[in-house]
């Protein structure tokens, strides 16, 4: 069975490199699709623009979403994902530099599954990225049945 891809929405190319490196280190076999802004992300999800022709029913396992994006920002992307019946249940993890409570609350209100503050220290960042990547790719079908032992082994 083909693994579902992970959609990484991130405008900072250096963060993209670091995130990809962290995800690769956690031995995930999923394809990682990178969207550099909000429009690209929405194009991919709804198979429009440069992704026209893509099978719209093949949804990613999880969307890792930065909030501060050019053109259409993370909040808007999240809002549209939740507004569309096809992507309404798609797991979205917000990964951002902002530790503002206001942002956190707004994201959860819009229906984010998780909210992660990017740590400055790379080692911490790696750990966080690996664990969420691992968690959401393994539990896409049955989020409630996630076993802690599986998560533990995944992080190691």
């Amino acid at each position: 069975m083909k693994e579902q891809p992970i959609l990484l929405v991130e405008d900072n190319p250096k963060d993209v490199i670091l995130t990809l490196r962290a995800l690769n280190k956690s031995n995930l076999v999923n394809e990682i699709v990178v969207a550099r802004n909000g429009i690209e992300a929405l194009d991919y999800l709804f198979a429009t623009g440069k992704y026209a022709g893509r099978n719209v029913n093949e949804l990613p396992a999880v969307v890792l979403l930065d909030l501060k994006l050019p053109k259409v920002d993370g909040f808007e992307v999240l809002r549209r994902i939740r507004a569309d019946v096809r992507t309404r249940l798609l797991p979205v993890v917000v990964i951002t530099s902002s530790s503002e409570e206001k942002d956190l609350n707004a994201c959860y209100e819009l229906g984010a599954n998780n909210y992660i503050t990017k740590p400055v220290a790379f080692s911490d960042f790696s750990t966080v990225i690996s664990s969420i990547g691992c968690y959401w790719t393994l539990t896409t079908d049955h989020p409630q049945k996630m076993e802690h032992s599986e998560l533990g082994s995944c992080i190691e």
């Binding site: 670091l18 530099s97 902002s98 400055v120 790379f122």
Partner: peptide, 15 residues
């Protein structure tokens, strides 16, 4: 909060 941390993360990450 957002922008000052990104370059820091870059410095720390790539080192």
């Amino acid at each position: 909060a957002h922008d000052l941390r990104a370059p820091l993360r870059t410095i720390h990450g790539f080192s």
